[in-house]
Design a protein around this nucleic acid. Structure first.
Lengths: 231, 231
DNA sequence: CGCTATGTTGATCCATATCAATAAGTGTGG
DNA sequence: CCACACTTATTGATATGGATCAACATAGCG
């Protein structure tokens, strides 16, 4: 098995501090796989056979109920997903599919739990990771319950613009998925973009220009306790 | 400091497996306090000085933004809250207030983090707890994004009825808060109760009678991946 | 190229919020 | 113990955010 990806995995906070022997044990049992776009990786309800690590590409986490579907998160390299299900050995709560050509490391869940029991640094790293994930989901819930779709979009755009450090940028996902992620329909997203024009937002295809950041910020009223996903 | 409450705290999965010396160290630094109803315990944005353990009574976790407020969870004895903020030493994401006369154990966050670094059983118990919390919040997000308010209420009632094992029960919180928790207005909740009458739900004050569980279940379409908070 | 999925726009419908008025509890102090 | 004040719950009328349906435009892609 190629060594090339292991370096990237080892750098992850989740794996960085654990014992070398334990890390090697995990990697021995793991395997890497390249997936084409739009391939289903896991389906909600299934048993968590593997902890997944996205090495390249990107993965959509989504969920369905009664014929409806919603996008819950996007996973970019290098990070893991479905850690909680793996640790608890409980069914996946979300389905996952590749968005583009992606390289994924699959670590057998049993191995993860075994090393979790033996390696204290790993156990602590998992705590940090889970706390982080928990807080992101709580912020997301607040975003959904306290804001209208227009406000959610405005804050999303502000965050993207801060991430790039520029007043203009390209959307990282197709609008259809962005709409689902923000909890609205594609039609409504189109209109929401129009609704932000008075606040200095210009949309050209997937390119966003924020010409009046002050006005947009005044409208969006971003809060560290909702929008800052780093703490 | 009274010993009476320590027994209950020690029984918690979070504290049950840790070393006795470490548990005693935590309890030495902790203190218990009795609060009247409707007292603010913490405010979102503040630094996490204490891990809170509800010994008796109940606590509302809520959040505000731009003049709006929403209820995110209710904590009943015996359990803890704001564990993630304590571990990460990051600001509280939610505010908390007592709903009734409540007895709360306050454990200094520094102590929790110190023992977390030393006691491996405690670190592992925290992983279990956080995984659980994470999964509950994810389920909650799915509930919000995939269902209408009528469907959320129907599933809430089914869950309550299963909890008591009976076809009738009393609501455990005032309707006003239930509405906020379910992501709707009090007026809309009133109408939603009416809307469930055709599915065999009768409301008398805070008493709920589910006269046709099959019909309600058919409408609510409960799913273990959304409604079962035990896995 | 032309096919198919995505995005936009308009018309309409529906769920839910808001506003307003009333009723019903609940707690407090005289 | 009752009367008053205050909060909560209900109900009706209306407004609005957002969904749905339909038509069309556009952009990727084999």
């Amino acid at each position: 098995m190629s060594e090339s990806y292991e370096e990237g995995v080892r750098q992850l906070p989740l794996f960085a501090e654990m014992g070398q022997a334990h890390f090697e044990a995990l990697m021995r049992g793991a395997y890497v796989q390249n997936f084409p776009p739009r391939i289903d990786l896991i389906t909600e309800g299934e048993a968590p056979d593997f902890l997944h690590v996205v090495v390249s590409g990107s993965v959509d986490l989504f969920s369905s109920w009664n014929g409806r579907e919603t996008s819950l998160a996007t996973v970019y390299p290098v990070s893991t997903f479905i850690l909680a299900a793996t640790i608890k050995d409980a069914p996946y709560l979300m389905s996952a599919r590749t968005l583009e050509k992606s390289r994924i490391v699959l670590v057998p869940s049993e191995d993860v739990r075994a090393v979790f029991d033996k390696d204290n640094a790993f156990a602590r790293a998992i705590v940090t990771e889970l706390s982080q994930c928990y807080r992101v989901v709580v912020k997301n819930t607040k975003n959904l319950k306290l804001r209208t779709s227009l406000e959610r979009l405005a804050n999303y755009l502000l965050r993207q613009s801060q991430r790039t450090g520029l007043g203009e940028f390209d959307l990282t996902m197709e609008k259809r998925r962005l709409a689902s992620f923000l909890g609205m329909t594609p039609e409504n997203l189109s209109r929401a973009f129009k609704g932000l024009e008075p606040h200095g937002v210009t949309v050209t295809g997937s390119h966003i220009l924020i010409s009046d950041p002050e006005s947009l910020t005044r409208f969006a009223k971003p809060s560290a306790l909702i929008d800052d996903h780093s703490t």
